[in-house]
Simulated assay, not measured.
Amino acid sequence: MEQSREIIKIAYHVLEDKKGEDIKVLDIHEVSVIADYFIIASGKNVNQVQAMAEAVEEELIKNNFKLVHKEGYHSSGWILLDFGSVVIHVFDKEVRDFYCLERLWRDAPAISVDTL
C-alpha cells in the first residue's frame, strides 16, 4: 500500500507540473481486482497528453517503479500506464468525456493526494 501511495504522489505532481487538468485519484481496491487505484487526468491536445504520459512514465521509472504495461501512444487520445497497483489514464478532453471512467467506476471513492 505504501508503494501505491508513493506512485500516486509522484504521478499526481508530475501531471500537475505538466498542466494536467481535472486530475482525480479513485480508490478502486474494494470494487476491482484490476488495481488498487486509478489516476485520471486530461490534457488539452494530443501533444500535451503524450508529454504528460511520457513525463509520468519517466519519473516513476527513475524512482524504481516497474511499468507493467502501457498502451495508447499511437492513438494518443487515451494513454494508459499500468504500474501494477496504480493505473494511470491520461486523456484528451473529448475522449475522457466519451468514456467517462468516473461514471463507470462511481462506486470507487475519489481520494485526495493530501490525505495519503
Rank of each mutant, 00 (worst) to 15 (best):
A11G: 10
Y12S: 13
Y12W: 14
H13Y: 13
H13V: 03
V14K: 14
L15D: 02
E16T: 12
E16G: 05
E16M: 13
D17Y: 08
K18I: 04
K18G: 04
K19F: 11
G20N: 04
G20A: 11
G20S: 08
E21D: 09
E21A: 10
E21C: 01
E21R: 14
E21M: 12
E21I: 11
I23G: 06
I23N: 08
K24I: 15
K24M: 12
V25N: 05
V25G: 02
L26H: 08
L26N: 03
D27W: 05
D27E: 06
H29D: 10
H29N: 11
E30W: 00
V31K: 00
V31Q: 00
S32E: 01
S32Y: 01
S32F: 00
S32P: 01
S32A: 11
V33A: 07
V33G: 01
V33W: 06
I34W: 02
I34T: 06
A35L: 07
A35C: 13
A35P: 01
D36R: 13
D36G: 14
D36F: 06
D36Q: 15
Y37Q: 09
F38S: 07
F38K: 10
F38A: 12
F38P: 00
I39N: 04
I39E: 07
I40M: 13
I40D: 09
A41T: 09
A41R: 03
A41V: 11
S42H: 03
S42K: 11
S42D: 09
S42F: 10
G43Q: 03
G43D: 02
K44D: 03
K44C: 02
K44F: 01
K44R: 14
V46R: 08
N47Q: 12
N47D: 08
N47K: 13
N47W: 00
N47I: 05
N47R: 15
Q48D: 04
Q48G: 05
Q48A: 09
Q48W: 07
V49D: 05
V49C: 12
V49M: 06
V49Q: 06
Q50A: 14
Q50D: 04
A51I: 07
A51L: 05
A51G: 14
A53K: 04
E54W: 07
E54D: 15
E54N: 14
A55E: 15
A55L: 11
A55S: 15
E57R: 14
E57I: 09
E57V: 03
E57Q: 14
E57S: 08
E58T: 05
E58R: 12
E58I: 01
E58F: 02
E59M: 06
E59V: 07
L60W: 12
L60M: 09
L60G: 08
L60D: 06
L60H: 06
I61Y: 00
K62R: 14
K62V: 01
K62C: 03
N63G: 02
N63S: 10
N63P: 05
N64A: 14
N64W: 02
F65Q: 13
F65N: 07
F65Y: 15
L67G: 12
L67V: 13
V68P: 04
V68I: 15
V68K: 14
H69P: 07
H69Q: 11
H69W: 11
